[in-house]
Computed example of a mutant assay.
Amino acid sequence: MQNHLAQILLVHMLRAHAGQTDRPTGWLGALNEDGIGAALRAVHESAFSTAFRRVVGTSPAQFRNQARQPPRPAANGNRRARQRS
Rank of each mutant, 00 (worst) to 15 (best):
residue 70 P to Y: 02
residue 78 N to Y: 14
residue 33 E to Q: 13
residue 65 N to M: 13
residue 60 P to D: 01
residue 36 I to P: 01
residue 19 G to A: 13
residue 46 S to P: 02
residue 26 G to N: 02
residue 44 H to L: 13
residue 33 E to H: 08
residue 26 G to T: 03
residue 34 D to S: 13
residue 34 D to M: 10
residue 30 A to G: 05
residue 32 N to H: 13
residue 75 A to D: 06
residue 43 V to S: 08
residue 60 P to I: 02
residue 74 A to I: 14
residue 49 S to W: 04
residue 80 R to C: 08
residue 49 S to Q: 09
residue 40 L to Q: 01
residue 32 N to I: 13
residue 43 V to D: 11
residue 69 Q to R: 10
residue 69 Q to V: 11
residue 22 D to T: 12
residue 80 R to A: 11
residue 37 G to Q: 00
residue 52 F to M: 01
residue 81 A to T: 12
residue 66 Q to P: 00
residue 74 A to C: 13
residue 29 G to W: 00
residue 23 R to I: 15
residue 21 T to R: 06
residue 53 R to D: 00
residue 79 R to Q: 15
residue 54 R to Y: 14
residue 29 G to M: 02
residue 45 E to P: 01
residue 72 R to V: 15
residue 77 G to A: 12
residue 71 P to H: 06
residue 23 R to E: 11
residue 84 R to S: 11
residue 42 A to N: 06
residue 48 F to K: 03
residue 32 N to D: 07
residue 59 S to D: 06
residue 72 R to Q: 12
residue 29 G to A: 06
residue 29 G to D: 01
residue 62 Q to G: 06
residue 63 F to P: 00
residue 26 G to K: 02
residue 69 Q to I: 09
residue 34 D to L: 14
residue 48 F to S: 02
residue 82 R to G: 03
residue 73 P to M: 06
residue 23 R to M: 15
residue 22 D to S: 12
residue 37 G to P: 00
residue 79 R to A: 13
residue 83 Q to G: 04
residue 36 I to L: 12
residue 61 A to V: 15
residue 30 A to R: 00
residue 36 I to H: 02
residue 66 Q to C: 10
residue 54 R to M: 10
residue 40 L to Y: 01
residue 43 V to T: 15
residue 56 V to K: 05
residue 26 G to D: 02
residue 26 G to C: 04
residue 39 A to D: 10
residue 28 L to A: 07
residue 69 Q to P: 01
residue 67 A to Q: 07
residue 30 A to V: 03
residue 28 L to K: 07
residue 29 G to E: 01
residue 38 A to G: 06
residue 36 I to S: 08
residue 44 H to Y: 08
residue 51 A to N: 07
residue 56 V to G: 02
residue 28 L to T: 05
